[in-house]
Every structure is written in C-alpha cells, then in structure tokens.
Write a protein that binds this DNA or RNA. Structure first.
Length: 495
RNA sequence: GCCCCGUUGGUGUAGUGGCCUAACACGCUGCCCUUUCAAGGCAGAGAUCACGAGUUCGAAUCUCGUACGGGGUACCA
C-alpha cells in the first residue's frame, strides 16, 4: 500500500558533507518540478546525522546553490514550517523514540560489537568466500546482558531484526516492481552508538512525520529501499511512492566526480553560466518533455513535467551541450539584463587601472555587439576589455597577415586623414563610418579583410573583436584617432 | 562473491509489434552569408538499436540466456 496522490509533498534531503553537486542538484530540481507541477510542497531537510563527515560551510553552499538555481522551498531551514525542525540533528528524540518502539515490539535489538570487531568479522567472511554482513551475534542475547555491557562502557547500537525468510517488493515509478529477498539483507544498524540514527531510520521517520508523498532520489538508494519498507512496516507507517532517478555520469561512464572537472553547481555559477540554462539542460538529462523542443523556460517545464517522461538509464553529463545551451540563453536575454550581469563581471575582472564604477552607458551599447558571440559570461572580458583599456601595441599586434609594414602605415595615415573630414567629424555613427571607410579602402590594393583588419588591430589590439564600425562609433572619434596615432608611433619607432 | 538497476550514432534523447531503408538536439565535416570571431542558413558523415536464441507472417520494441557498464553490500548519506 502506498500513499494517495492527492497532497504532493516531496523533499530534497542533502547532507552537509561537501559542495552542492550537479547530480544532487538535478535530484533537487526534479523534486522541485514535481512539486510545482502538482501544486504541492517542496521541502528542504538537512540530513546531518553523520557528525564526523560534517563539513564547515557545506550547508551554506548548498543553500546558496539552491537559491541560485531558483529552487525555493516551502518548508525547511530559514523558512520553517509546521513539520519542523528540518535539521535531523535537532530531531534526535524522534528517532530514539522510534527505535524504542521497535525494541519494545521485538523488531529490534541492541548490540555491543565494536566497529573493529565488525571489520574483522567482514574480513574473515570475505576470506572464507562468504557474503559479508552482520552475523546476528547479539540477535538472541538477553537485554540485561547488553544493558550491563552498556554500563561497562561498551558502545551500544540498535539493529533491526530483519526476518530471515520471505521477500519485500515495492513499485518504482520508473522501473516497475522490484523484489528483494530478505535473506540478502542483514540486521542493519538503525541507531548508532552516539545516539544518532542512521540514514535508514531517520529518513523513514522523517518522511512519515513530514507526510512525504513521493520520494524522488538517486538510483543508489534502490538497494536500501527494502530496508526502508521493513521499517515502515514495523513502525506501522505507510511508505511513500518511490521514484529512483538514474545517475549522472562523467565522460568515462563512472559516477560524476571531481575527476570529470567541475561538479559543484557554484563552479558553474562562477564560470558564467546562467541558472536558467543549467536548469534547462539538467532537466533534459533523463527526462523527455514529450516533444522535440529542447529550449524550455522554467514555466514550460513545470507545466510539462511528469514522471512518465523520466528515463531509467544513466546519463552522461556533456559540458559542451550545456555550453551551447548557455549561449542560447545569453542570446535570448534582454540588453538590460545582460548589461547588469556583464557589469558585475567587468567590475570583477577588469584591471584596477580601469576607473570604477565601470561605465554602464558604454556597456549597454556594447551588449548587442557581443551577445551573439558569447557562450558564457566568462568569455566577455576577452571581447570587450579594449573598450575600457587602450591596448598595448607592438608591430606584431598591428600588422595583418599579407600586409606589409609600409602598407599598414599608409592605411592608418589615410584613415586619420579621413577622420578629419567634416562629414565624419560631425556625424561619427556606424552607418556614416562604414560608408566613408569602405570608400577609402576601395582605393587600396588590398582585400577588405586586410584593410579593415588593420584598422581593427590598430584600435583594439585584437584579431578577434566585435564588428568594427560599431566599435569605432562606440569608442568615439577622439579615442579612435588617439589609438591609431599611437599605433603609428609604435610602427614608426621600431623602424 | 552475492543482490539490484541499466544497455538505440561520440553525447543527450525519440521510439511501447508493421508508418524504422531508425527521428530530433549537441558535437563533427563541407558550403553560403561575412571586416575578424560568433550567430544564422543549407548540405553531409556517423547506429548491423550490446550479443545470442526464441515468440510472431513481422521485433529497437515481447521472452529467456550471455556479455558489458553502474549501484549496493558501513555505527556514510
């Protein structure tokens, strides 16, 4: 028996042991989408039952990651809710109560074997070719004996008494019915020696108390699910619906990890990816919208999201496609928005010699010129720094392929002369500049690309830059003249 | 070892018994556009649907087996 579909309540339950990982964020995303689609609730719960693995700043980063991705939670840390607290270390009594119930109704027992003893046991089992697992040492020992052991200072854990025979099956929304033989499951620990619950106990107690209707979690949990089913059964609870998401893999088809490059969502934030693009890309990894369209807004995805579109095989994270998609999102963005984020980027990356705040008026004019050319905002600086900082020139940076030094000097001198014409002087705008410049270079015995390339490099110091005529107009007549003169000086000096 | 999940071009996916001589997107190649770089347009290469057997008039699609990949087998989550 499972819960009804009426009140959709899902949760994302990270443990604060590291960075907000791409795979985890995708799980969060799917949970969030499912909740939004059904007008349900998305709950954030912190699973910090392993005190030894806790990492400083991890929780903050996870929250930062979720906020950046726009995955807002209805209940959880910073937000509260009627099922709180939402941090497991603050709910200890609930788990020990559950363990007590299990102890009382005979479904659990205490055990005083130390981790060292257990490790030795497993090694022996392996050596003898037996399947490793708890051997049931304390299963039938008297309670008084264990309590005495506790008084003597030995560490005591609580284990679930897993039936030796039979099987448990459950229905996974993606994979269908999955069956496990109970003989393959040992008497696992539910309450650790430090009084903290293990994941198994904690997630069952919390999902029940928080009335979670659907558990969307990674595929790595499939094997543990029969343990959870058992716990629900012995505690008299009704299990939620299970949806085990396929894993995210790296290029070599192993679980995505640091070896594959950036795995923290925050690294993508810092590399100039837009959260909308990452969201869009991530949803497409293991989910099909029902049609070929791939560029989908968050609202469209919410509207279309359903469990049926979920895929059962693991997906390899392809950064190239993400990068392409990010470019699509940049191109789609408004000038106002891009001006804002580009401004932040330039404030950060332009050298100190550039006066702050960075000129927003100019930036706004630059945006339409570069938005088609960028894949990430990280690429921005290379394209536009010369607008704010005159280039340092040498012969090498000015002279174009197939053009002699003499020709280069001639082109630049004539360009300056042309700039002196009144018609240009008074109306230094793109169309006008183009008209006169094209006229001028028509008199040279060079290809258009060579002539214009020469002017480009003289002004920008680059081979790759935004469209020339617009660039000149944005820089303004005086600045252009100054830069060309400077280039001429460089060329003449080294002669 | 044992248990569980998976397997369609390099990648993500579509496909649920005949419309599949397998579709779409990224990437790749070529051409066009063009002042550079992008963007855009057009064309193309790339998959014996992991393999084998079976069911069927007919299978990428159903069944079984094998191989390979992944996950689990903790007082980690």
């Amino acid at each position: 028996m499972t819960k009804s579909q009426e009140n959709i309540r899902v949760r994302f339950a990270p443990s604060p042991t590291g960075e907000p990982h791409l795979g985890a964020m995708r799980t969060a995303l799917f949970n969030w989408l499912f909740a939004k689609h059904h007008n349900g609730k998305f709950i954030l719960r912190i699973e910090d039952t392993d005190q030894t693995r806790k990492q400083e700043g991890s929780l903050e980063n996870i929250i930062k990651g979720l906020e950046w991705m726009g995955l807002d939670w209805d209940e959880g840390p910073k937000k509260g809710g009627e099922y709180g607290p939402y941090t497991q270390s603050e709910r200890k009594h609930l788990y020990s109560n559950a363990a007590k119930t299990l102890l009382d109704n005979g479904h659990a027992y205490l055990c005083d074997r130390t981790p060292e003893e257990l490790k030795l046991m497993r090694e022996t089992q392996k050596r003898e070719g037996k399947p490793p697992g708890y051997d049931g040492f304390s299963r039938n020992r008297k309670l008084e004996e264990l309590e005495k052991s506790r008084k003597e200072g030995r560490p005591i854990v609580t284990r679930l008494k897993v039936p030796k025979n039979g099987n448990r099956k459950f229905t996974d929304s993606i994979r269908g019915e999955i069956n496990f033989d109970l003989s393959t499951i040992d008497d696992f620990v539910i309450l650790k020696a430090d009084g903290m619950p293990t994941y198994h106990l904690a997630n069952v107690v919390d999902d029940h108390l928080m009335q979670i209707s659907h558990v969307l979690r990674g595929e790595e949990w499939i094997s543990s699910t029969p343990k959870h089913i058992l716990l629900y059964e012995f505690l008299g609870f009704t299990p939620p619906n299970y949806v085990h998401l396929s894993l995210l893999l790296g290029k070599d088809k192993t679980k995505l990890s640091k070896r594959h490059g950036a795995t923290s969502i925050l690294e993508y934030k810092n590399s100039g990816f837009l959260p909308e693009a990452l969201n869009n890309y991530l949803t497409l990894l293991g989910w099909y919208p029902g049609e070929n369209q791939e560029i989908l807004s968050k609202n469209e995805i919410i509207k279309k999201f359903n469990l049926k579109g979920l895929n059962d095989s693991p997906a390899i994270f392809d950064q190239e496609k993400l990068t392409w998609m990010n470019g699509v999102y940049i191109r789609q963005s408004s000038t106002e928005f891009l001006t804002k984020i580009f401004h932040e980027e330039l404030e950060k990356k332009l050298p100190n010699t550039v006066k702050r705040p960075v000129n927003k008026g100019i930036l706004k004019k630059i945006v339409p010129l570069v938005k088609d050319r960028l894949k990430t905002t990280n690429d921005l600086i290379e394209y536009v720094d010369f607008f704010f900082l005159p280039p340092t020139q040498t012969d090498h940076t000015i002279i174009q392929k197939g053009v002699s030094k003499e020709e280069t000097i001639k082109i630049l001198e004539k360009t300056i002369l042309m700039f002196n014409k009144q018609e240009i002087h008074q109306n230094f705008v793109t169309e006008n500049i183009e008209k006169y410049l094209r006229n001028l270079i028509g008199t040279f015995e060079l290809k258009t690309r060579q002539s214009l390339g020469t002017i480009r490099s003289a002004v920008t110091g680059k081979d790759v830059a935004p469209p020339l005529f617009d660039t000149l107009s944005i820089l303004g007549l005086e600045e252009c003249r100054k830069r060309i003169k400077n280039s001429l000086e460089v060329l003449n000096k080294q002669n």
